[in-house]
Computed example of a mutant assay.
Amino acid sequence: MRSITKASGLGAITAVALMTALSACGSDSLNTGSTGSASPTGSVTTGGADSSLAAMVPADIKAKGTLTIGSDASYAPNEYLEGGTTVVGMDVDLFNAALAKLGLKGTWQNANFDTLILGVTSGKYDAAASSFTINADRMKQVNMISYFSAGSQWVTAKGNPNKVDPDNACGLTVGVQKGTVQVDDLTARSKKCTESGKEAITQVVEQDQSKVTADLISGKVQAMVADSPVALYAVKQTGDKLEAVGKIYDSAPYGIVVAKDQTDFAKAIAAAFTAMEKDGSYKQILAKWGQESGAITTFEVNPSVG
């Protein structure tokens, strides 16, 4: 789950080709005109605008018609850059479908993750969708609408040659992305190791998750830990290079972000997701990206979280 920060489409499965693809993602260049699409094939029927849902949209939002959506497109399969310019991914498909129910469209802009909430509160973006883990601190600043559930997942080399056990990781070298909740998790695990007289966990912290994955493929680290959709996508896209180890844990909801004074718009988005769940388009999109396990059935504005 992305805490304060967050992989490109991974087409080739050889280590060299994969690392080339990975190193290309997470670009700081901004795309100001992408409407978003998706790489994996699969038919998803979202339908047109729902008049009853569109009636829930505040007048100022409805007048815009096309909204500006901020996202850090470096977190495949949730959001990443295709062709270096177009923001695509599961989150893009989901939110675009919800907007369509409301009679709206979105133009997606790529930006650094830690600038997105400020972009929403300042009015630069009408909304942000970027694998935001819902938490109390964020909900003090913005409204958040739950739409997916993700946890943490460990990944190691195929065959687990280092006998990695997430519950007994003392002495391991583990890759992790800067600013994520997984950094806090590893820090806490390492503290328990040293307090019991065992070796600490060595963290190799990278700015981009793509580099973390490349570190694991190259053998620089013995394992990595990341959000479950991202970790499992990396396993799938690398063919016989990686495997998941242990179970998904510490699951929490992702949330779409809108301004604090846009509660009515937030409610409309939640209602659109509810409609998508009922007509099957929500699960169709998740299936397209291989993320059915993260499906939820209740979509809430500022849900209670632990």
Rank of each mutant, 00 (worst) to 15 (best):
S37G: 11
S210P: 04
S210I: 07
T180F: 11
D250Q: 07
N110K: 02
Q153C: 09
Q209W: 01
T263S: 14
A244Q: 11
G36T: 04
A252P: 01
G70L: 02
K211M: 14
M56Y: 05
F95D: 13
L242D: 06
Y249V: 12
V142Q: 11
G294P: 03
V230S: 08
D114R: 02
T298Y: 04
T32G: 01
G171V: 06
W289D: 15
A275C: 02
L99D: 12
V183R: 11
C193V: 03
A214H: 05
K62S: 08
S74K: 02
Q291K: 15
A271D: 10
V212K: 08
Y249S: 11
D240L: 01
K163C: 03
V257T: 05
Y80G: 15
P303Y: 05
T133P: 06
V120L: 07
I201R: 06
A7H: 13
L30H: 01
V87Y: 03
A127Y: 08
S23K: 00
V120T: 12
D114W: 01
G11Q: 06
S190C: 08
A223D: 05
V92M: 14
G197W: 01
D215P: 09
E195K: 06
T194R: 00
L286W: 03
G89T: 10
D227N: 03
S251Y: 02
T156D: 07
T46G: 14
D93C: 15
L102G: 09
A24N: 04
K163V: 01
A226G: 12
A214E: 00
S34G: 03
A17W: 00
A136K: 03
I145R: 13
A76F: 06
G119W: 06
A231K: 04
T194M: 05
C25R: 04
Y147M: 11
A271F: 10
G119S: 09
T213E: 12
